[in-house]
Write a protein that binds this DNA or RNA. Sequence first.
DNA 1: TTTGAGATTATGCATGGACATAATAACCTG
DNA 2: CAGGTTATTATGTCCATGCATAATCTCAAA
Lengths: 233, 233
Amino acid sequence: MTAKEANSWTRIRGELLRRINERVWQPGDLIPGEVDLAEEFGCARTTVNRALRDLADSGLVTRKRKAGTRVAVNPPHKATLTIPIIRADVEARGCVYRHALVTREERYLPHHLGGAFRLPEGAQLLYTETMHYADDRPFIFEERYTNVDTVPAFGTMDFEDISANEWLVQNTPYSGGDMVFFAANADETLARYFDTAPGTAVFAIERTTWDGSDPITHVRMTYTPGYRMRTQI
Amino acid sequence: MTAKEANSWTRIRGELLRRINERVWQPGDLIPGEVDLAEEFGCARTTVNRALRDLADSGLVTRKRKAGTRVAVNPPHKATLTIPIIRADVEARGCVYRHALVTREERYLPHHLGGAFRLPEGAQLLYTETMHYADDRPFIFEERYTNVDTVPAFGTMDFEDISANEWLVQNTPYSGGDMVFFAANADETLARYFDTAPGTAVFAIERTTWDGSDPITHVRMTYTPGYRMRTQI
DNA sequence: TTTGAGATTATGCATGGACATAATAACCTG
DNA sequence: CAGGTTATTATGTCCATGCATAATCTCAAA
């Protein structure tokens, strides 16, 4: 036993990582089997498996039964970014969070959502606009289409105390969805909301979520000018 | 044995997920210990552990020794987005990829990078500007500061055949870094590069990478107006 | 009342063994 | 020789068990 660390799957992973980084095993190479590695490191196959599985999760190696494990050809840059709950995001900056419902009405399925939302022609959706404030300064403008059929309770909420965003996050399980990040020029309305000049660049995220094949909600969140979304890799 | 699936940790995870989604266990609740669950499901503790660890990885539960496992209060929306190799991104759109080195010079550490790059005062960096094209239309404008001390071979490359981006991705192991996503208004120069009006909103990503405590590179990638970055959740 | 040592306990990790599964290789047979 | 069948093999999963470690609780001493 070394003083530093006994056996552990992270040690194995570290050694495997080193060999990949230092090109001992080149991209595309087949690396030794689990039993061989287990013997080399003097540990159980389970432990090697744990290490290899972790590397596979992070995309550095690809594994196939019988075929073996090989070093990935392009180690993909993966960044896991955590979309913050707005309230938490605001409060983490030491600001007071507040929100206000701007609009709430029934709307027909907008044409540009036709691809994302598979709904019968002319289906009605609940459309809400919410402004989220940080210390009374506008922080995020939220435009949301919600399929009331899949989330019936949503239609009866008034969103005075809790925002649509927060309610949906906490009450609606979803099976999947997609997100789009982009930049846009603030139009007249948005510029007035954010008290800035029209044309100012704003960062926006659109998210569509599903439960199985049922669409739940489509939301566009437009951030205050100058907002920077950070993540670690 | 059911016809569908025998015992497996995914079955356990599914059942746990159901209980969380259906509020059998409320957010913040302490859920039964591994031994109890193992007994209930008639499997080994290891298997329950696997399922719980997976849920913890995806952020739905938080685990602490002795304290036990509890349902996360805000199931954080995590999106893993894969930063594409630019060439692959362009070619996936069915376009021809090309790039051109615009600028290459020694520069002092810019003031705004002082926080990210811990370098001795007045340290020199290699500054490169590269334009990436898709079918001869400007696609991404890349501004990069590289610490030649940590990546010596980088200084001798000419980047005619392979871009700085591609070379670094394939040749430089990094231990970590951070990314920032934001929107900006195109300035005069950028507008001319992208053949658009000054002030047009552009989507940009800044990335800083490290190897241990040594800074490697800081890069800002400004995308063509209208670019939308997608990811699945 | 406070503080610190020790018991308790839930998760984390490791082991060796076993069987399952998928993909490939080797081998038949028509 | 083509096509299908079987053997082989590397990974995937599971089990029972044990020890390690961290957080908490208990309780007695200062």
